[in-house]
Design a binder for these strands. Structure first.
Lengths: 227, 227
DNA sequence: CAATGTGAAGACCTTCACAGCC
DNA sequence: GGCTGTGAAGGTCTTCACATTG
């Protein structure tokens, strides 16, 4: 049995479905239709069906999808049957907030290590975890079996940290620093840039303000799914 | 002169170009080619040229783009010629980090108000700014001319806060809560879900681990642009 | 009958390739 | 010669619409 490749666009929505499904399961729902799931996730029902069809045929015509089963299949597909350990580099404002964020543990991600270069920070504890020096990164990755690196450093340090992470064997990096990172083939990077999100909103805010002024109608311009 | 509609995909990249261009300007570069800009932003040069062509013809054949002029045009297109005031709802871990984040001010976004419902937090100061009660939201939006609302509350409170923001006249919302929000037509929402980003990485991490195991080559699977 | 699964059509975006211009 | 701007081609994703099935 070969795992068919799941389209990237689908991969970004699976976690969304998963969250909705877990909520439904908590509410005691046994099955769910693509219509209901679509509404709750903010996409079209055809899109839901197409997405889920990439995982296999787990629905029942006339009934819908078995909630528990679908949760299992999505978890499996996303690789969430195992827990992952993450390492956070940079414990400034954002890094500290991430280190304390409870949402990670709830979804199976363990913050296994915190690192920084600032002597004033190294050795302190955040949420019970000691901040270690950047130089210990390789040792920590090995000892804690870290799989994902999170970069929350200033932009100027981001590339160096990324290089060290790759060097230490990490192949998945989540970058919060406002900098473009270069990594070798085979390393996956995702980035979240907070200021860029605001700049994108600025565009639509300005556009809508103009439209209102002119009284023109244009295209809907409704809610835009982020991320 | 009608402002031609800029494709959504282009809008998400303009802030990226802007950041690179500002760096180039700081380094004293007067002009830049689509090739150089593309490399620095991590996209193809054809993509850069197509994107910029949506703003107008600001390049010079044989030379490239004038850095200062392009910065100006992108700022104008994104609505960044004016400064925007934002309001942050929820001053837990993440909200506090956002409140203190210097990157916003650098790009023209002023944190104008902080609100929460927790009596232990209301009245305290974060980075010199007093935390106000949620009930004061409409007053604050008016007084501070807030244009963008940022939701950093627990998921359970997010929809209520969004409703109040819309009620108070906000039409642009950045949502960090892991919840799907419903808003009326004409309100733009972007969302950033930190745990979802990790789950997406998990998929590729698992896929690549499998590939390595099997020794198959498949498709490149290189760096994936986030956001 | 209700709801999935899916070809086909359509929308959107990216890449190609080169004419046009400095 | 170098680099932009852009039609055309190619790819990916979404929506449509309906045959299929429990």
């Amino acid at each position: 049995m070969t795992t068919r490749p799941v389209p990237d666009a689908t991969v970004t929505r699976l976690p969304l479905y998963l969250r909705v499904l877990v909520e439904l399961a908590d509410q005691g729902e046994a099955t769910v239709s693509s219509d209901v799931l679509a509404d709750a996730a903010g996409v079209s029902s055809a899109n839901v069906r197409k997405d889920l069809s990439h995982l296999g045929s787990y629905g029942t015509r006339g009934i819908g999808y078995d909630v528990a089963h679908l949760i299992h299949e999505i978890r499996r597909s996303l690789g969430l049957t195992q827990h992952w350990s993450i390492l956070i580099a940079g414990v400034g404002n954002l890094g500290q907030a991430l280190a304390r964020y409870k949402g990670f543990a709830e979804r199976g991600f363990r913050v296994a290590a915190l690192i920084d270069v600032d002597p004033a920070k190294v050795g302190t504890r955040i949420d019970g975890m000691e901040v270690r020096h950047l130089d210990e990164l390789p040792k920590l990755v090995r000892a804690e079996r870290v799989a994902i690196g999170v970069i929350a450093t200033p932009a100027t340090d981001a590339q160096d940290v990324a290089d060290r992470m790759v060097q230490a064997g990490l192949r998945s990096i989540l970058n919060f620093a406002p900098a473009m990172l270069t990594v070798p083939e085979g390393v996956t990077i995702r980035k979240v840039d907070l200021a860029i999100e605001l700049q994108i909103l600025s565009y639509y805010e300005k556009r809508d303000a103009l439209r209102e002024l002119k009284g023109s109608v244009g295209k809907p311009g409704g809610a835009i799914a982020g991320s």
